[in-house]
Design a protein around this nucleic acid. Structure first.
Length: 576
RNA sequence: GCCGACGUAGCUCAGUGGUAGAGCAGCCGCUUCGUAAGCGGCAGGCCCGGGGUUCAAGUCCCCGCGUCGGCUCCA
């Protein structure tokens, strides 16, 4: 999307200007509030204020009105360069601005920008006049720590959005509504897929039958890929002695993300936060020859991680989840090839689930943790990406504590980005657990590990799929693929026959035997987003046919039951 | 965890100090119906929990719990 408007400021400049307008309005209506910072953000802007009392929704309405007046007055945005001392003197009553001014490096200009009676310390990047803001709306208030640090005082943040024209604002608001309609938490209730139960605690997911069916299909898809690529299934305990995580280093590096210890017979146990140590124990249990490698262990491993209550969110941020986890133990020579096949499988998976737009991030370890082997690992990742000609971005310091990693992000049907698969190279845990294999030279060598989860967490993956498809799962994934719907009670018998035939072929089919008119039943199943409604009346019962009402297809067709079965089979086989 | 908003029937929500309501969903009956809501009836509530104010609290105050929006975007 182009930023530049035909005759005016870019959107970020426009929004940054709107932030100044907001601060101006606040200065007029709430003179005691101290402005701090107010940048443009992805879809709008915010401004943080230090004020004793929080802003109320009512305050937002008043501020928005005042902002419109400031915009209508069409003030010019004028800048001036001052010395740092002048700036500090000027904002003497505002410790935040003083702190900001003091932090400006020597040699960089210190600039002030003014609209009307409001002057702000600001680096610039604005529209020329407030009148260029065609549409503005304040969206929410929230607490936010000064500089994002929870040890700092909490400020009041006002969020807003600004656009060149009211039509663009409307478009944005419509888009938000669309996203809300797709919210997996809402659809989870409406389609009876899953729930999170207050009496069980936050972040713990209950999969209802319809959700569990979809999960089973996802697992089946993944399992098939693993089998074809030579992975061996393993299953490991959910609770193990804390000792294991002392050896693995998780306790040292990851304790903040683990549930507290359970004490039994004076031994301390932990819920497993990761599957790797368990898989390592299996590998370590017996000697290995280079001839056996690579060894690939896979598990739908359920892990528990402590997340602060405030960050839990539906299926996408939870405390208990199941990873499609696997660990590859291989020789350094095999690393490259194993990494490539993993990447290949990741793409196969994401394409099957309807994603086509990917981004790749190579995350390196933070400087303090880096070892000689990091370069080898990063090189393997880089070469795999180049081999598939995939462009990637570098995230320095974003890697796991045991090594660098590749993350794959996808864009969903309405353009939002999600982080999905992750593949990590690990020279560290084999060292900690003293893993070895006997080489052709008769000596012991250290294997390399690859950690990989392609869907990531099944919970999160499911949540993303719900939003991606807006609840309308394609036929191969739909928990109910077809509902046979008799027009009157007289066709219930035939409807049951049709359903029995289709179920016998392995399809997921139900019969609507409710005492309602056809229109009611159609509406019901449409809102349930069932891919096929098979209407059967007197005519169909006589001809051994069904009238196919296909989701999001206007045209209805009457075809034989076996023709329908073939069509559905074709859909399922092609994942349509 | 911190800031704010919210918490009333399975769901969506009304009720703002004086006898707890609606729509949808559910159940029962009538209707037997041709592609997005047929009609009638019944049932359904620790108004999140605890404390307080008041003659009287779903409503006001305090303390918890939960949900939601933020707390990464840097003058």
């Amino acid at each position: 999307m182009p930023d530049a408007h035909s005759n005016g400021a870019s959107l970020p400049a426009l929004r940054h200007t709107a932030a100044h307008v907001l601060a101006y309005a606040v200065q007029e209506l709430f003179p005691d509030a101290k402005p701090t910072i107010g940048p443009a953000i992805e879809n709008g802007f915010y401004y943080d204020f230090d004020r004793g009392e929080p802003f109320t929704p009512d305050d937002l309405v008043r501020l928005e009105e005042r902002m419109r007046k400031i915009i209508a007055a069409d003030y010019e945005m004028t800048g001036q360069t001052v010395t740092r001392d002048e700036a500090i003197a000027r904002f003497a009553g505002n410790p935040y601005k003083v702190e900001l001014a003091e932090a400006i490096p020597d040699g960089e200009p210190v600039t002030l920008y003014t609209i009307g009676d409001f002057t702000d310390l600001c680096r610039g990047g604005h529209a020329d006049r407030t009148g260029e803001i065609g549409a503005v709306k304040l969206t929410s208030v929230a607490g936010a720590y000064w500089r994002g640090d929870e040890h700092n005082p909490m400020l009041q943040r006002i969020y807003g959005t600004a656009w060149h024209t009211p039509a663009e604002l409307d478009g944005y608001l419509t888009q938000i509504e669309e996203a809300q309609k797709r919210d997996h938490r809402k659809l989870g209730v409406e389609l009876d897929l899953f729930s999170i139960e207050e009496d069980a605690g936050g972040g713990l997911v209950f999969w209802h039958p319809k959700g569990a069916i979809v999960r089973g299909l996802i697992e089946e898809f993944i399992r098939t890929g693993l089998r074809e690529r030579g992975y061996l299934p393993v299953v490991t305990p959910h609770v193990v002695s804390e000792k294991l995580y002392e050896i693995s280093g998780h306790l040292e590096n990851y304790a903040h993300g683990m549930f507290g210890a359970l004490e039994v017979e004076e031994q301390r146990f932990r819920l497993k936060p990761m599957n790797c140590p368990g898989h390592i124990l299996i590998y370590r249990g017996q000697p290995h020859s280079y001839r056996e490698l690579p060894i690939r262990y896979s598990e739908f491993g359920t892990v528990y991680r402590f997340e602060r209550s405030g960050v839990l969110h539906g299926l996408t941020r939870v405390r208990g989840f199941t990873q499609d986890d696997a660990h590859i133990f291989c020789t350094p020579e095999q690393l490259q090839g194993e990494f490539e096949q993993t990447l290949d499988e990741a793409l196969r998976l994401m394409k099957a689930f309807g994603f086509s737009d990917f981004e790749y991030f190579l995350s390196t370890r933070e400087e303090a943790l880096r070892a000689d082997t990091d370069a080898i690992a990063e090189d393997a990742i880089r070469r795999a990406l180049e081999r598939y000609e995939l462009p990637y971005q570098l995230d320095e310091g974003g890697g796991a504590f045991y090594g660098p990693k590749l993350d794959i992000n996808v864009r969903d049907a309405i353009g939002r980005k999600w982080q999905l698969g992750t593949v990590q190279v690990d020279f560290n845990l084999p060292e900690r657990f003293e893993l070895k294999y006997r080489g052709a030279d008769g000596l012991d060598h250290r294997p390399v590990m690859i950690h990989r989860a392609l869907a990531g967490s099944l919970e999160r993956f499911f949540g993303i799929l719900i939003e991606h498809y807006g609840g309308a799962f394609p036929a191969w994934l739909a928990p109910v693929q077809a509902v046979v719907t008799p027009i009157s009670e007289n066709q219930v018998g035939y409807a049951r026959e049709v359903a029995a035939r289709l179920s016998g072929m392995g399809f997921r089919v139900s019969v609507d035997e409710s005492n309602e008119k056809l229109g009611y039943k159609i509406r019901h199943w449409k809102t349930q987003k069932v891919p096929y409604i098979l209407v059967v009346g007197k005519q169909e019962a006589a001809d051994n046919t069904v009238n196919v009402n296909e989701r999001s297809v206007e045209e209805k067709r009457t075809i034989s039951v076996s023709e329908f079965a073939e069509e559905l089979k074709r859909k399922v086989d092609t994942r349509g």
